[in-house]
Simulated scan of single mutants.
Amino acid sequence: MCGTETRTELLLAAPEQCGCGCCSTGARTTTPPAARGPVYSLEGLTCGHCVQTVEKAVACVDGVESATVELVAGGTSRLAVAGTASADTVRAAVTGAGYSFTPGQ
């Protein structure tokens, strides 16, 4: 660029301050599911994208006011649903998104 340097160096956030659990090495805090409404146990979620996929799918169900997932990567995550939607319609939304309820739910 004509011999002049006009670039500004940008500071990058430390990995522990950003990214999902599968992309960063630091501890990540999660928001627990909402206290009201039924809570379901889910399997197959591994990162923040999985959480968003499930929350969006369940939020589109008639009767759902909110859907919040507490991620346990590689383990049993929890889905809290506020509203009047039935467990069967919530299950259909979760399985339609590619994830599954734990046995017994």
Rank of each mutant, 00 (worst) to 15 (best):
residue 33 P to S: 05
residue 44 G to Y: 06
residue 104 G to N: 05
residue 29 T to I: 09
residue 52 Q to W: 11
residue 39 V to I: 14
residue 67 A to Q: 04
residue 68 T to K: 14
residue 13 A to V: 01
residue 7 R to S: 12
residue 79 L to W: 08
residue 21 G to M: 00
residue 6 T to S: 04
residue 49 H to S: 15
residue 73 A to T: 09
residue 103 P to F: 02
residue 98 G to E: 02
residue 40 Y to G: 08
residue 82 A to V: 14
residue 65 E to A: 13
residue 38 P to S: 13
residue 25 T to L: 15
residue 47 C to Y: 11
residue 50 C to D: 11
residue 98 G to K: 02
residue 19 G to Q: 07
residue 100 S to H: 01
residue 99 Y to D: 01
residue 16 E to W: 09
residue 105 Q to S: 08
residue 34 A to M: 06
residue 44 G to D: 06
residue 94 V to N: 09
residue 75 G to Y: 10
residue 18 C to W: 02
residue 45 L to V: 11
residue 94 V to S: 07
residue 64 V to L: 09
residue 86 S to Y: 14
residue 31 T to I: 11
residue 67 A to E: 04
residue 34 A to Y: 07
residue 105 Q to E: 10
residue 15 P to W: 02
residue 20 C to S: 15
residue 78 R to E: 14
residue 24 S to E: 08
residue 4 T to C: 00
residue 76 T to R: 15
residue 14 A to R: 05
residue 35 A to F: 08
residue 38 P to C: 10
residue 8 T to V: 02
residue 29 T to R: 11
residue 87 A to Y: 14
residue 91 R to N: 04
residue 8 T to E: 01
residue 43 E to V: 04
residue 98 G to Y: 03
residue 26 G to P: 15
residue 72 V to W: 05
residue 23 C to N: 10
residue 55 E to P: 09
residue 35 A to G: 11
residue 47 C to E: 10
residue 39 V to W: 09
residue 17 Q to K: 05
residue 9 E to Q: 00
residue 22 C to G: 03
residue 74 G to Y: 14
residue 78 R to K: 15
residue 26 G to M: 12
residue 33 P to K: 04
residue 97 A to N: 08
residue 1 M to S: 00
residue 39 V to F: 07
residue 66 S to T: 14
